[in-house]
Nucleic acid binder design. Sequence first.
DNA 1: CTATTTTTGTGCCAAATAACATAAAATGCT
DNA 2: AGCATTTTATGTTATTTGGCACAAAAATAG
Lengths: 232, 232
Amino acid sequence: MKRSPNITDLLPKLDGLMQLLTEPQRSNMCGVASVHAFRKNELIYPAGSHPTMLHCLVSGKVKICREGVGLRTQIVRVIRPVDYFGYRPAFAGEDYVSSAIAFEASVIVGFPIDMIKSLVRENASLACFFIQRLASDLGQADERTVNLTQKHIRGRLADSLLFLKDSYGLEEDGYTLSIYLSREDLASLSNMTTSNAIRTLSAFATEKLVAVDGRKIKLLDEAKLAKISRMG
Amino acid sequence: MKRSPNITDLLPKLDGLMQLLTEPQRSNMCGVASVHAFRKNELIYPAGSHPTMLHCLVSGKVKICREGVGLRTQIVRVIRPVDYFGYRPAFAGEDYVSSAIAFEASVIVGFPIDMIKSLVRENASLACFFIQRLASDLGQADERTVNLTQKHIRGRLADSLLFLKDSYGLEEDGYTLSIYLSREDLASLSNMTTSNAIRTLSAFATEKLVAVDGRKIKLLDEAKLAKISRMG
DNA sequence: CTATTTTTGTGCCAAATAACATAAAATGCT
DNA sequence: AGCATTTTATGTTATTTGGCACAAAAATAG
């Protein structure tokens, strides 16, 4: 993690939040914001640590991982630019229960969480900003629970592929997922063993639902994937 | 669902929220609040409907159910007095994705959600009230996902029993869960079939971890249940 | 109080999935 | 380039869990 020099060039990206502040609040925030660059697979914060920052992903891709029984980790959320993350435990009065790890090289702006918390206490618009995000995330989390617990392997993998498309989009060709995941990551997103992720992805390829080239995955038949996802 | 006459006797219960309002806001709220009594198993709101109320459970017990693949329903949250519920989708700009059903006879105070939303926009303390709850619920939801997906049947059932104790407490004897669930509800809380809930609960009884008398469940060895839950 | 429905309990079998073993391929490192 | 490590691939087996059938018990309705 290296400190990147200047925040002023990143300001436009932070507009969504900055616009909600008064002018003095805004300049205050800029003064204390820090910019960090993370390399691929670098740990942004570990589970168990105390939250000190509100993070804003300016560029790159990040995964939020929770580890369950016997070191088996699960990807519970993925972050794309320009998403804010790492604030939930602070608002709930907890320490981090999940870790944040960069999928790929990423730039993150950090704001001291205590300052954010006091701003929220006096700025209802800012508070609404977080309410809206927490409310959506909670809905997604519940849906994810049902998906992971009730669907069979094929349904879960199809679901993950479509989820990745929604989250990170496709490349210019209109087919290739913009994120290149290891089979292991795909497995922890879909709650299955790596073997089964590999096997099932191969099966999808055989059925011409996807085309696989290393970590590059083309979605050839989204409609059918959606159907598989729906049927479990 | 019948309309109960007066809200004034319930006011002390609503203090947690009312204290955050200014005097005019408070009297305004009281004017538009409505009180409803629900019988056992009565539907409070159905999935798919549009949220119109912030609900506050004053007495009784409520389950929030989401139905997944093939009508299989899952209990995603349980509500105890004095909890607020039913507001998440309104803040996320969605319709209800889950239903609320009374476990047992319950009294609920309803506030028009649009009024709550506009209050939240101008009252940062009230906003923080919801932020705090959403943040905790989101943490619980993530933990639940890991529990349900990574633990084996025994672990999940043990988990549910301890969760029910945390949520609704024990009776005066210090052992009996204060909530009497059908085996089917126990199953949808633990994400397993009813047969397996019955089987596994019997196994726990044989092992003297619990004592079962109809729907009455005594927790005889919480430490061991916690261990089973941890190990998966 | 009896008939009907729902809930609970148990056994057996089949399906889904994890675990393990091993090899090939790809990647990173010096 | 060559070696070590990680990732991907595939087959085999064992475990876990769901599905189904049916009986007993309990709750509910008439």
